[in-house]
């Protein structure tokens, strides 16, 4: 992606918004599972995490739609970094789509039957019947995929920071300058 070709407004906004929801859900998952011991706060953070996950899923669907309709900026150089970038992005798209889905599936299958309300209001329907083995398998998958996403995000952010000078980093954050 050279400085000349930039992402569209919709692409930038969908990246920023879905990224914020994904990061909040990811960091929240670590906080609620590893750092918080108060059961009331912990339970509440799980509910917030569920809302963040569904918000992320909606934003990711929008983002994928936008991405498919709009052209890509020109490739970065060298070529091997471009290949790595393409692979990383594909993996990211897969992960940010299936992680919220496994989360939704797992709370649907859970024998705990904790009602999920998006923003504390909108009830979220179950997409699977109650099943303990299914729940335990999905819980494991959700957690491992989360760690995988963290690792791929490190790669993504490292790549972005390595391409500050050529304007790639700025291209997703700022609107293109009008042609002179």
């Amino acid at each position: 992606m050279s400085a000349g070709a930039r992402w569209s407004r919709a692409q930038r906004w969908s990246h920023q918004l879905s990224g914020a929801a994904i990061l909040a859900a990811l960091v929240g998952a670590i906080v609620m599972n590893r750092l918080v011991s108060d059961q009331g706060l912990r339970f509440m953070l799980y509910q917030v995490h569920k809302t963040l996950g569904i918000v992320a899923l909606v934003l990711v669907l929008w983002r994928i739609g936008v991405r498919m309709r709009m052209p890509l900026p020109t490739p970065i150089r060298p070529a091997w970094q471009n290949s790595l970038s393409v692979a990383t992005h594909r993996l990211l798209y897969v992960l940010i789509f299936i992680i919220p889905l496994t989360g939704w599936a797992m709370i649907s299958a859970s024998p705990l039957k904790i009602p999920t309300r998006i923003f504390g209001l909108v009830p979220l329907p179950d997409i699977l019947p109650t099943s303990l083995p299914l729940y335990l398998a999905l819980l494991k998958a959700h957690a491992w995929l989360g760690w995988a996403l963290g690792a791929v995000l490190v790669l993504h952010i490292t790549g972005a920071l390595a391409h500050v000078r050529d304007g790639t980093f700025a291209s997703i954050w700022r609107a293109p300058r009008p042609p002179v």
């Binding site: 339970f43 509440m44 009602p115």
Partner: peptide
């Protein structure tokens, strides 16, 4: 009372 509005309301619920 389980020490939090969210968890307490779940414990009180029909679930």
């Amino acid at each position: 009372d389980a020490g939090g509005a969210s968890i307490t309301s779940y414990i009180k619920s029909s679930a």
